[in-house]
Amino acid sequence: MSIKTENNKAWFLIIPVIILMGLNAFVPLMTVINYSFQETFGDNVFFWEGLKWYDQILHSDRFHSAFLRQVMFTSIILSIEIPLGIAVALALPRKGALVSLCLVLVALPLLIPWNVVGAMWNIFALPDLGLLGKMINGMGIDYNFTRDPLAAWFTTVLMDVWHWTSLVVLLSYAGLRSIPDAYYQAAKIDGATNWAIFRYIQLPKMKSVLIIAILLRFMDSFMIYTEPFVLTGGGPGNSTTFLSIDLVKIALGQFDLGPAAAMSLIYFMFILFVCWIFYTIMMKDEGK
C-alpha cells in the first residue's frame, strides 16, 4: 500500500475550505470577469463584447482623473502618516505605567467604524455649526468643505490622518520595542548623536514593520470609500471622487455592469501589482 493513496483522505478535510473560498472569492471574481467581457440589458441576456469595456475605461478621461485623484490622495496621506507615525512612536514612553495608557489612547481612532468617522468629521467640519469649521472661519479663513474643493481635500486628508496614523504609530512602536538596550548603550559609547541613533539603529530596525505599515496604508487608502462618501459624497463636483466612489457610481448609479466590471478588474490588478512590488522588496530583505 503506498503512502499516496492514504493521503487522499486529507482532501475531504479541506472540502469546507474549498467551498468557502469558492463562494466568497472564486465565484464573485468569475462573475465580474464574465461581466467585463459582455453587455447585458437585463433578463439574463448577454452579448459578447470582447475587450471593448477595457478599451473604453483605459481611454476614458473620467477614469484617468479619478485614478489621478486616487494616486494623489494616497501619496499625500502616506507622506504625512508615515513620518508622523514614526515621530509619535519615538515620542511615546519606552517603559513605565504610562505605556499602556498611551497605547490605548493612540489606538482609539482605530476602533471607530468607518462610516461613524465620516459622519463625525462631517459634523465636526461643518462651517456653520461644526467645531472645526467654525474655528477655521473664526480665524478669518473662508472654509467650506461642501463648496470649496481645496477645503474638501483638506478635510478628507485630515480625517484620514486622524483615523489611520495610529496604525503606523503602533507598528513603529512595536519595531522600536524590539531593539535591544545594548544597541542604545553601544551608540552612547560610540558618541552617536540622536540623529545618528535614529538613522543607523532605529530606522533600519523598523524597516520591516514600516514596509508593512506602508503596504497596509497603501491598500486601505487606495480602496477608501466609506469615509469620503459620508463626508463629501465625492464632491464638490467630482473633486473628491476617488476610484471606489466612481466605481460605485458606474455600477449602481448608472447600472453599467460591463464597464464597471472592467474597471474593478483594472483597479484590482493595479493594487495587486503594487502589493507584489512591496512583497518582493520585503522577501528580498528576508533572504539576506
Partner: peptide
C-alpha cells in the same frame, strides 16, 4: 560623566553592529 566623555569602549554580550553600514 556620560559614556562618551569617559573614553571607554564596551563590547556587549550580543554583537552590536550597524546593519546598514
Amino acid at each position: 560623566m556620560s559614556p562618551d566623555q569617559r573614553h571607554i569602549a564596551q563590547v556587549f554580550q550580543f554583537p552590536v553592529i550597524y546593519d546598514t553600514m
